[in-house]
Amino acid sequence: MIIFQTFVVLVMIVAAVAAARFGDLLNAVIACALVSLMASIIFYFLQAPDVAMAEASIGAGLTTAIFIFAINRTVRYERNEKTD
């Protein structure tokens, strides 16, 4: 069990770092969704099914959709800061 949880937490950390590093915002959004999904699994194992449901439906589902709408309305790639 502890191995599985460690794995989940590691995935969360990697996904969080990846979300910050990705230049393609779409990838970053997917990485964010992964963080939320893993968080919801953790919540479930911590015996908080209510929070797990909220995290899965809002964090992994709707927020991702809203981010994608926002990307659709703006730009997909981060501008290189040096060109500013």
Binding site: P49, M53, A54, S57, I58, G61, A65
Partner: peptide, 17 residues
């Protein structure tokens, strides 16, 4: 059961999505 207004509302909204 687990779940409630926020969770159910989010599921409903995903239907609209």
């Amino acid at each position: 059961t687990p779940g409630g207004g926020f969770q159910g509302g989010a599921v409903v909204a995903s239907g609209f999505l």
